[in-house]
Design a protein around this nucleic acid. Sequence first.
DNA 1: ATAATAGTGTCTTTTAGACAATATCGA
DNA 2: TCGATATTGTCTAAAAGACACTATTAT
Lengths: 259, 259
Amino acid sequence: MSNKEALESYDQTPFRTPDGYTSDIAVFTILSSKVGEFKPPHMTLMLMLIKRSFYNAEGQVNIEAGKWALPGGFVQPDESGFDAAKRELEEETNVNCIHLKHFGVYDKPGRDPRGWIITNAHYAIVPEHELSRRKANDDAEDVKLFSVEEVLNLDLAFDHQEIIEDAIAVIKHDLLHTTVAKNFLQKQFTYSELQAVLKTVTNDPAVLSEQAFSRKIKTLPFIEEVSGQKTQRTSKTPTQLYRFADDINIVRPIYTARY
Amino acid sequence: MSNKEALESYDQTPFRTPDGYTSDIAVFTILSSKVGEFKPPHMTLMLMLIKRSFYNAEGQVNIEAGKWALPGGFVQPDESGFDAAKRELEEETNVNCIHLKHFGVYDKPGRDPRGWIITNAHYAIVPEHELSRRKANDDAEDVKLFSVEEVLNLDLAFDHQEIIEDAIAVIKHDLLHTTVAKNFLQKQFTYSELQAVLKTVTNDPAVLSEQAFSRKIKTLPFIEEVSGQKTQRTSKTPTQLYRFADDINIVRPIYTARY
DNA sequence: ATAATAGTGTCTTTTAGACAATATCGA
DNA sequence: TCGATATTGTCTAAAAGACACTATTAT
């Protein structure tokens, strides 16, 4: 009995099927406010949201109109949810993503008034300057960046409050436990630039202290000193540049880490 | 213009929709082979699979018949994928899960010959004795435990090879980086019992060495000594018992961990 | 010279890692 | 007493944490 025969006799409609399958993207960037010449930057972690317009592309009244929401859209049958996220991010911001990662599925019954709709949630990291090319598309009347503190006070569409809370928790975790921070930095960076990124998500004194962190960075196995390369962009004294190694990232298991 | 009106004018079929939404579960257990009286146990991490039967409940020829697969099934419209996994696990093994966690979505076009089917993958941890009640249901002609080493040599249905590889990677990671190991242990346990669990997934000398690990366990912030409580089940000399604290689990960020 | 950032010297405390030694207790 | 597991003693090397101090350079 072949698989082919089984497939032919397979009843196509044994179960009710979902009314839609979508991919949403939490697009993060870091706004780097230049404090002044010869000073390390101050950084703020921002999330890009769209304001849902009152009419959609077909001229119909839009659902959840006027509310802020994550960009996203329906997955096509010939692509995966991840591919759809990549495509939508490019349509939305003209960016072929630097970093895109799936972090959750949202499928609670009743989460979308249009029916049984399953959403795959991803987060993306996009450099600030790339977002200048962002645009409001047919379904959006506005696009804006919000700090991760203010974003949760907005009137958000669907269950995007919950999705955004999860996204923020995930990127905060990943910034400290993986090397994604590299996506917010230039190829070569000073200890104080990396420090500025990490300061957006931690108060650990080992990160906050100049002395401690400028020493610590030299011992991190996934970061290497670029010998001889210095810059004056963060201070008058020429400052050592570092880069992330290409290797995989290692995390210390909890049973052997130091506490 | 209200949300209600927008909903009424919403075109129900603007996109092709998926042909199915399923939840699969990788059920892990640890077989604890009692080596002898007054000895610590030897443990093996096992995964439960079902063998797909040739005919399904309706008497039709089954797809991917004869192959080994993860238990799972279609999500109902009134439940989430997580709820479905919980329900299916209970139907399959009579177990209200001890630990169940979502770890991935599988939606590549063509992954299931029956059509556009999206699968939510979960892993569960079930104590060995609970699995004695496991049963083969209508769609399965056999249910069996495989060690994580041998399981990848089987002829596996659909893209379950990939899903299982991911599941094994996730549980190995979680055993070392979270406190899920507690689900494989009694409430109170000796250092050598915890060690036996961790030995199924690591060769770290700090875990392997009796002296090192029996000292280390006392310093772990998420494990507490049960003062005065001793047992002789692992050795002739009465041995200190420990328990996991109720707190949340802390992992050291890579930028401040010791290397 | 000053102010600001980067980086070093040095001391103390804690932890890791290794190896030897002791403790317990049923058989 | 023997044998196996648990646990402590002790030493060394490495790292963390704290604080003072030096280095650099545009202004």
